[in-house]
Write a protein that binds this DNA or RNA. Structure first.
Lengths: 356, 356
DNA sequence: CCTACAGTCGTAAACGTTTACGGGGTGCGT
DNA sequence: ACGCACCCCGTAAACGTTTACGACTGTAGG
C-alpha cells in the first residue's frame, strides 16, 4: 500500500523479470554471471537492476544454496573484555575484510553477551546458519567451542592456541620470541637481574613464556632465579601487584619484562609511588604497542605487530579450510606463530655499568 | 554421506516431524509457542528438538516471515577508527544486547571496510535483508546514510546528532554540559585564564562546544578571549599542537579543557618538553574516562558515563521505532542528550591563589 | 438428534532464490 | 532434407519455514 505510482518499489526478482519481460531464471543467471545468457540480455538486466535498485534477498538465496556468504567473528562483550578492549579486533578485522572481499564474502562480528555461555551462543549462531564459517578468539586452554565447531563441521580458525581437539587451524603470537628477545636486549645493556611477569603456569602461556625466558637467560650466562618470576594477573592491578612484589625483593632487579601492556600502567604507578622512575631506575619492556600504551610517560619499549597483516593471514587460513576456497590457498599453513618486532621506547633506554 | 548411523543428523523440521510422526505444521506451532497445540504434544516436540539438537534454519524462517530478528550495529574499520577505538562500541554493545535479549533479538556488528563507501556498504547490507533494523554511529554533519535509511523505511537509531533528514532518533553526548561544568570547576579553583580546544566551528560540535564555554565564562564573570579557543584536530597530534599554541601565548592560560581524551597524551608530552607539569603548572580537564585515559600520569580529570546505560537507552529508542515493538516502549524519547559525570583526577588538583 | 463450539491437528500455499532440465531456434555439415 | 551442435531462454522444482484454512474429534446445549 506504500507503493504509489513510483516504479522504485522493487520487491523481488519476479518484478524485475516482469519489468524486463524475461523469465526470472534468465534474470538470475544474468545477475550471477552464468555463461548461458546473451550478453545483450545481461546488459539490459544489469542496467535495470541498477536502475530499480534491486539486490537479491539474502534469505532466499542462502535458503536455496545452503550458504550465506558471511563469515562470523566471535568476540566477547563481557565486562573484562570491554575493559581490555583496544584496537585489536578492529585492526584484525580490516585485514580479514581485505581477504574476504576478494570472494565477495562479508564479515560479521558476533558479540557474545556477557551473561550467556559462549558455547551456547556459538551453538545458536551456527545452528541458525547465519554464517558459513567462524573465527574465534580468546581461546581457552580447553575450549568447548573448538569441539563444537569441529563436530558440527563448520570451518573455523582461531586466534590463540588451545589444547582442545587435535589439529585445528590457529594463529598465535610469538610469546617465546618476545621473552627471548626482551631478555637478549636487556642483557646486552648490562642487566643481570631481569624479572618477568607471567600468568599462572597452569595456563599454557604461563608455562611457555617462562620457559623461553629461562632459556634466554642461560644463553646469556645469567643464572635463573625463581623469585624473579612474578605470577600475577595480566591486568592493570596485576602490574601494580607485580611492582609491589618486586619492591619487596632484597636484591631488586634492574629490569622487568611484562606480558601485557595494561600491566605497565599499574607498574608505573606503584614504582612512582616509591620514587622509582621507569627508564631511569628500572628498565621496563612491555608487550604490545597498543595505542593506549603510547600514553605512558616515559614511552614504553614493547613489541609491535601489524594487526592488518595478522588479519590477512588469519583470513587466508580460514579460507584454506573451507571446501569452496581450499584450492585457492593451497600452501597456507595450518598453524602460524606470529612474529613481533621490537619497538624501542624510553622505558629501557639506559645501560647498566658493568661491575666485575 | 557423512550421516552414519547416528540419529543426530537433524536437517530440518521435516525430519523432526517424521521422527515424531506428527505433521510439520504442528511441530512448528509447538516450537513457536502457538496456542492451538496440545500441551502433551508440545512437550514431546520440545523434548525431541532438544534431544536431536534441532534449531530452526534462520534463512527459511526469515524468508517466510520477512524479518530476521537481527539488529545491525554499523561500525567503521578505517585506519582512523582503529586508532581511535577504545572500549566505546563494546561498552555500548553490552547494553544493547541486554535490551535486545528481552525480545530474542540478536546483535550483529557490521564493520564497514575502510576502502568502501559507508553508504554503499550500508545499502548492500540493508538490501540483503540480513538485519531488521540498524544502529549507526559516527554520524557526519550531513550523513547520507540517514537519508538512505529513512527512504528505505528501515528502522534505525544513531549515536550522534546530524543535520540530515529532519527528525530521526538519536542519542548524543552532553558536550554542552561538559564545557559548562569544566569551566565551572576551574573557575571555582580560581582559574581565570581557561583555554579550550574544539574542532572547527564548521562542524556542529565545534560550534556548540565553544558557545557553551562562552556562556559558562560569562556566568562566572570571566571575559571571553577568542585567542584561548584552540581549533585543532581531535587527536593525539591535535593535543600536541594545542599545547604548542598555548605555549606561544604571552598571557599563558592556567587551565585547558580538552574535547577528546586522546588529545591529553599529546598535550602532556608537549608540556613536559617545556617543563610544564600538568596538575601543577597547568590544570587539564579531559573528556571521557576511556580506559586508556587512565594511563596518564598524573591522572586525568575527565567526564565519565556508563556505556552500558547508554546502550540500554539506545536500544530502547530503536525498539520504540520498530513497528513490532513500538507499543512496548511508549514513553521513549526520540532524542536524548546523554549526561556525563565529572570524575576528579590529579590533573587539575590545585588552586590558583586569588590575586586581587 | 441436531447444532454449535472449542480443542487439535493436517494440508498446502506462500516467501525469493538458484539451477537442472528441456525446448525452441539457428547454423552447419552431410 | 536431415541430423547435430550450439546458443539462449523458459519451466518448474527445490531449499526450510510459517500460517491461513479447513477437517476431524468430542462435548455441551438445545
Amino acid at each position: 500500500m506504500r507503493t504509489k505510482g513510483k516504479p522504485s518499489s522493487m520487491r523481488g526478482i519476479r518484478q524485475l523479470a516482469e519489468h524486463l519481460d524475461i523469465s526470472i531464471g534468465t534474470v538470475s543467471r544474468a545477475l550471477n554471471g552464468k555463461p548461458d545468457v546473451n550478453e545483450e540480455t545481461r546488459r539490459r538486466v544489469l542496467a535495470a537492476a541498477e536502475e530499480l535498485g534491486y539486490v537479491a534477498n539474502q534469505s532466499g538465496r542462502s535458503l536455496r544454496q545452503g550458504e550465506t556468504k558471511v563469515i562470523g567473528l566471535m568476540i566477547e562483550s563481557s565486562q573484562e573484555a570491554v575493559e581490555n578492549a583496544d584496537n585489536f579486533f578492529l585492526g584484525v578485522t580490516s585485514g580479514l575484510q581485505h581477504v574476504f572481499a576478494r570472494h565477495k564474502l562479508d564479515l560479521l562480528m558476533l558479540p557474545c553477551p556477557s551473561d550467556e555461555d559462549p558455547c551456547e551462543y556459538l551453538k545458536r549462531m551456527v545452528a541458525r546458519r547465519v554464517v558459513d564459517a567462524m573465527i574465534i578468539s580468546n581461546t581457552q586452554r580447553i575450549d568447548r567451542r573448538i569441539d563444537l565447531l569441529s563436530r558440527a563441521r563448520i570451518p573455523f580458525a582461531a586466534v590463540g592456541r588451545s589444547l582442545s581437539a587435535g589439529n585445528f587451524p590457529w594463529i598465535d603470537l610469538d610469546f617465546e620470541g618476545v621473552a627471548e628477545r626482551a631478555v637478549e636486549r636487556l642483557a646486552a645493556r648490562g642487566h643481570r637481574r631481569i624479572a618477568i611477569t607471567a600468568p599462572s603456569s597452569e595456563v599454557n602461556l604461563g608455562y611457555v613464556f617462562v620457559e623461553s625466558y629461562r632459556r634466554a637467560l642461560e644463553k646469556h650466562g645469567i643464572p635463573f632465579n625463581p623469585s624473579l618470576v612474578i605470577r600475577v594477573k595480566s591486568s592493570e592491578q596485576g602490574g601494580y601487584q607485580a611492582a609491589h612484589e618486586l619492591l619487596l625483593l632484597e636484591d631488586r632487579p634492574t629490569a622487568v619484562v611484562l606480558i601485557y601492556e595494561l600491566m605497565a600502567i599499574g607498574l608505573y604507578r606503584r614504582m612512582m609511588e616509591s620514587g622509582i622512575v621507569p627508564g631511569r631506575d628500572l628498565a621496563v619492556i612491555g608487550f604490545r604497542d597498543a595505542p593506549r600504551a603510547r600514553f605512558l610517560q616515559p614511552s614504553l619499549s614493547c613489541f609491535r605487530m601489524s594487526l592488518y597483516d595478522l588479519g590477512i593471514a588469519l583470513g587466508e587460513m580460514l579460507l584454506a579450510n573451507m571446501p569452496a576456497y581450499r584450492e585457492l590457498y593451497p600452501d597456507c599453513g595450518r598453524n602460524i606463530i606470529w612474529p613481533l618486532e621490537l619497538v624501542q621506547g624510553e622505558s629501557d633506554a639506559f645501560e647498566i655499568e658493568a661491575m666485575v
